[in-house]
Write a protein that binds this DNA or RNA. Structure first.
Lengths: 172, 172
DNA sequence: TCAAACGCGGACTAATATAGTCCGCGTTAT
DNA sequence: ATAACGCGGACTATATTAGTCCGCGTTTGA
């Protein structure tokens, strides 16, 4: 995969289910099965979202996750950074100081300021991050809501509710 | 490394040496040793730049590379695409069609248009690519020229000239 | 004419990252 | 007490990256 990995893709999709979940607090297993992805893999993703303050975790039986703040205050960049850890698009290796014409301690001017190539890459990364910061979880949820039939949200809530009550019940 | 790899970093640094090379056409080995990187690794990078029409290759003894067009007409994006092959920042896996509430052929509306998450990532990638396309090799060369002492360009040309004549000579 | 250096490509290796799985801990509700 | 929860660490398989090595066809100075 590329720079924005499956972790981010899975994370956002499952956060979107959380937007319309109402009072419920689905577990990571609930979310994984609702979304059709690996439960054990999703279980590695959500703790990162919790530490970043995007979701709140409720421990114990009947526990699970809910959004820690309104969806309109969670940007896609917040999610990406929480999951991927703010890894840079480009890592400058300071190649500019390694020139056959330089002596062992390379001249000062060679490492003065930021490497021009690095600066260009940083501008590109900034542009990418700005674009990700411009979109919130609420925007994405609205886009999905427009596509789905009117009763779909209620169906999802019902499905999550059934999962929750089956846990309380005879414990399979 | 991240999404923009060492290949790109090495490629751009060595292309910059080519900007001020004048009439000379340094070999990839010349460029690698001038820049202090692995000659065999750089030798895998330059054929890609050649196929993209960024540099022109001259085969045979005394052969080497020169820019195929003016540095002002070579953007950083051109170089990145030539070396990395235009790989996307994000690969959508169409997770949206995999919902536990869907039947085996998922409903039409679920895959209607572009996935909203994918669209956001594509906007971010576009922003990144636009930023890379805004900078040319000539811009980078100018930035370096401002830092280096006035006679540095001439020293590099002399170094490359000596390498060239030592090839013609008694063969090491 | 012949060797040496060139570009080019393919096969190979080592290290790292990604996508997962599995197990055990402490917590909590039934 | 048990079962499900979040959490973390250890583990595996596969893909990518960084880099080496060798061989082919071309060109050219000795």
């Amino acid at each position: 995969m590329a720079h924005l990995t499956s972790r981010v893709e899975y994370g956002i999709h499952c956060l979107l289910w959380l937007v319309g979940a109402g009072e419920q607090q689905p577990s990571s297993r609930d979310l994984a099965e609702l979304q059709g992805i690996s439960p054990s893999f999703l279980a590695k993703i959500f703790p990162r979202l919790e530490k970043a303050g995007i979701v709140a975790a409720v421990p114990g039986l009947r526990g699970g996750y809910r959004l820690a703040r309104p969806a309109a205050q969670i940007t896609v960049l917040d999610i990406v950074d929480a999951i991927e850890g703010d890894k840079p698009l480009f890592e400058c290796q300071e190649i500019r100081t390694r020139c056959a014409l330089f002596d062992d301690p390379p001249p000062r001017w060679a490492s003065r300021g930021t490497c021009a190539i690095h600066a260009t890459m940083q501008r590109a990364e900034r542009a990418m991050r700005d674009a990700l910061a411009a979109e919130t979880l609420a925007d994405l949820a609205r886009a999905l809501e427009r596509k789905a039939p009117a009763d779909f949200g209620a169906s999802v809530e019902r499905w999550l509710g059934e999962r929750a009550s089956s846990r309380r019940g005879s414990a399979r």
